[in-house]
Amino acid sequence: MDLATLTQTITFFALSGAVIVAALGVVLLSNVVYSAFLLAGVFISISGLYILMNADFVSAAQILIYVGAVNVLILFAIMLVNKREEYTPVAGRWLRQGGAAVVALGVFALLTKTILQTPWQISDLPPTSDSITTIGQHFFSDFLLPFELASVLLLMALIGAVVLARRELVLEPEPIFGEEVVPPLELPERPREPVVLSEK
């Protein structure tokens, strides 16, 4: 085993360990802020794995989009819904958690068996040296329609997020002209009151 392979192996296992530990922290920690920061750790470690697999552009996009946009968005959401609430205990919750753990481990065992049994046809050709050029050629030739649809999807997500996250306007009957002057530059909003929970 020469030096390059050794370095690659060591880097791979270090990054894999970081990914697994941080992902377990995301799922298992009780403080959701720690989970969000550990999620950034997962994203950065996965970006390192991408570099290890010759995917430099996707690695940069991963850091820019996931760490820079999605994770910051999640942190903002945590700040906006920052409510320390004690969850009411639910009967039989440990059974559900145990069942989920068993199912997840079963899926993992099944996937591992499938992965180890399948004869992968590893390509002998060396990977392409300029991945960015190849990706760009794909985007503007055979993946042109999905590329344009992705932009439409992003626009839809933008408008949809704004529509969903803003407060609803209160539609009041039109005041008689001259009687009551609504001050300009003001967004009338529905008063903040939670929907009454119907207790069974």
Partner: peptide
């Protein structure tokens, strides 16, 4: 990655609502 970004934005907006 694109779809994930859109999903995160819309999902967090739904959670806020």
């Amino acid at each position: 990655i694109t779809v994930a970004a859109a999903e995160a934005a819309v999902g967090l907006a739904i959670i806020l609502a």
